[in-house]
Computed example of a mutant assay.
Amino acid sequence: MVFRKLLPFLLLVLLAAPLGYAQVPDSTAMDSSKVDRRKLVPIVASEAAFYLGGMSYLQFIWYKDHERVPFHFYNDTKGYLQVDKFGHAFGAYVESYIGYKLLRHAGVPKGKALLYGGTLGLVLQTPIEVFDGLYEGWGFSVPDMVANTAGSALVIGQEILFGEQVAKYKFSFSPSPYYRQANGYLGDSHLESLFLDYNAHTYWLSVPINKLALKNTLPDWANIAVGYSANGMFGEFENKRYYRGVHLPETARYRQYLLSLDIDWTRIKTDSKLLNTLFKGMFFIKLPFPALEVNSKGQVKGHLLHY
């Protein structure tokens, strides 16, 4: 299920690199610039092809063995201690961010780029939610739609208010200690656990320290990040006791709130075109740094490195 909902995000990340998104600086072209159709046409065509391919995969492969039912809803607000909702917002944020930057790279005026690119996350995610509402075993999730909207709104709102993405939405993953105890429930490999183990996900808002201090005392790329994660989860709403005939360990589900340092890759300037491309493409990745954790068990912890 997680892979299915990340499909548009993964496709768009693959699309962005060959089309040269990584070369777009944060201060993009002026609104008066002429639209470069040589850049715009392949962007639109590639996005459309990937989108149609993804939707076809869902309709003809993913749902083919599931019964079509009348449209219905599914309330998963409390699922996975809301880590899933942070993931939805993250996917929509990245899709909208890339969509907006690609259009600006092609010279599309800012207003239209926000309208057609900044809403891309919501546009890509909504059909998946509608499909869910039409098949047995899922349902249309209003909380998912709220999270998707929030992800796109974060891109659009910051561009309108600040003219840039002051706070970048980032993701980090580290295999959880529950992975090997789950007998495959959290994935049979580390790659599968990336999509199935919410215990291993952390979502961050990363802001330049200079922006908070209102003066340039540190390098522009030095950031501070606040993060959210959760642990102890062997099920969506409550922990499963057995999986594949094996008893799963009893664990307490709890939330984690984190404070850490970070790097804003897009603000690192080098003379290397390759490095500049690499850094721009890593805008959504949070690096391991020391972190302070406060959790819902009432504990305060320090981590030498948290990822």
Rank of each mutant, 00 (worst) to 15 (best):
F50C: 10
P249M: 03
N295E: 09
D26G: 13
P18W: 13
P288S: 10
W221E: 08
Y57V: 07
A29E: 02
P290T: 05
F9R: 13
F279I: 00
I224Y: 01
A147K: 12
G54W: 00
W204Y: 13
P8L: 05
A252C: 09
E159V: 12
F289H: 07
G235D: 05
V226G: 09
L134C: 12
L6Y: 12
P143V: 07
L134Y: 13
T266F: 07
L218W: 11
D271L: 12
I43H: 02
W221G: 07
R4T: 03
P219N: 03
N223I: 00
D36Q: 05
G99M: 02
V41A: 08
K211R: 14
D84L: 10
S229C: 05
D144F: 01
Y169H: 03
L292C: 08
H306Q: 08
L287Y: 12
D132W: 03
W221T: 05
F162E: 15
L186G: 01
Y243P: 11
W138I: 09
G118C: 05
Y242W: 09
N276L: 05
P25K: 08
T126I: 13
F140H: 06
L19I: 08
Y178L: 10
L196K: 15
Y93I: 11
D31H: 00
Q165M: 15
W204F: 14
L14H: 02
V246N: 13
Y93S: 06
W221I: 07
L186V: 04
Q165A: 15
V2M: 13
Y228W: 02
A113T: 05
P143D: 02
G54E: 13
A49N: 04
Y80M: 05
V226Y: 07
H247E: 15
L40E: 01
R4N: 02
T202W: 13
S46H: 03
L275D: 07
G87I: 02
P249S: 04
Y178F: 15
L7T: 05
K269V: 09
P177Q: 11
Y93N: 06
S141G: 09
V2P: 15
V155R: 10
D36Y: 06
M55V: 03
K286H: 11
Y116K: 01
R38E: 06
S141T: 08
L259Y: 01
V226C: 06
K286F: 01
P288K: 11
V155Q: 08
A167R: 05
L259A: 08
T251A: 15
L58A: 09
V69K: 01
K168L: 14
E192I: 09
Y178T: 05
I128T: 03
Y97R: 08
G121S: 06
S189V: 12
I268N: 00
Y63D: 05
F162H: 14
P175D: 01
L124H: 08
H201Q: 04
D36W: 03
V294P: 12
E129Q: 12
H247R: 15
K85G: 06
Y257M: 14
P127W: 09
L161F: 00
E67T: 04
N276A: 04
R244D: 15
S27V: 02
V166G: 12
Y203N: 07
G79M: 02
G133H: 03
P42L: 11
T149Q: 06
K240C: 10
V24A: 14
Y242H: 06
L124F: 04
D144P: 13
P109Q: 00
I128R: 06
R180A: 04
V41K: 15
L12C: 10
T149P: 01
S260M: 11
G53E: 06
L212N: 04
L114C: 09
S260F: 08
E95D: 06
V69E: 02
T277W: 11
